[in-house]
Simulated scan of single mutants.
Amino acid sequence: MAVAMPPIVHDPIPFGPQRVAETRAYAVRHYGLQRARLVAPRVIVEHMTENSSFRATFNTFAPDVADPELHELPATCSHFVIDQSGTIHQLVSLKWICRHTVGLNYTAIGIEHVGFSEDGVLGNRRMLRASLRLTRWLQSRFHIATRNVIGHNESLNSPYHHEDVARLRTQTHGDWPHRFMVRYRADL
């Protein structure tokens, strides 16, 4: 059964020809793929922004500069950001790969939640409702199983995880660990 698309505010970050070319080069280095396009995504990754506003998140992703952690281009980004009011912002078209989760970017849609803690999302009814609506819609649109809706911290356990750069094969982040994702997936 098809799920209705939730209200989405389009707030695109710059994603012009240079960023597309950098994304293609990134996909070649990390996945052996000659494309910048996100083709048949199989994973949805939930993230925390570690800041307090949509604007701060936008300002992090908009400049195409090497990221401070891995020092690579293109800059990091996420397809969607959900702010604390429950507004869903789309930053990047679903036709492009975004750098949000090492080992999964080639097949994953990224959703950022504005805030500092998973409890803050799970305890904010508007934010959680928006997140679940967006995730359900994406699952329906791309036929993504609930088991493949993961927290960033669960990335290494995904059957889709693939990383050609040896030093990054075990790289992940602490946001949305399993104990929070068990509840989130149950709510889906």
Rank of each mutant, 00 (worst) to 15 (best):
P12G: 08
P12H: 14
F15C: 05
Q18K: 05
R19E: 10
R19W: 11
T23F: 04
R24G: 09
R24S: 07
R29P: 07
H30Q: 14
G32Q: 13
R37H: 10
L38A: 02
P41A: 03
V43M: 09
I44N: 02
V45E: 04
M48C: 05
T57P: 00
T60K: 15
D64E: 05
D67Q: 01
L70C: 00
L70S: 01
L70T: 10
E72F: 06
L73R: 15
T76H: 05
S78M: 12
I82D: 08
T87C: 03
T87S: 03
H89S: 04
L91N: 00
S93K: 00
C98G: 11
C98E: 09
Y106D: 02
I111G: 03
E112F: 12
H113C: 14
V114H: 06
S117W: 08
G120F: 03
V121I: 13
N124K: 02
M127D: 04
R129K: 12
L134I: 04
T135R: 05
R136W: 07
W137L: 11
L138R: 02
F142E: 12
I144Y: 08
N148D: 13
V149N: 04
I150E: 10
I150G: 12
S158E: 15
V165G: 02
R167P: 00
T170M: 05
T170C: 03
Q171N: 14
H173K: 12
F180N: 11
R183E: 10
R183K: 13
D187E: 14
L188Y: 06
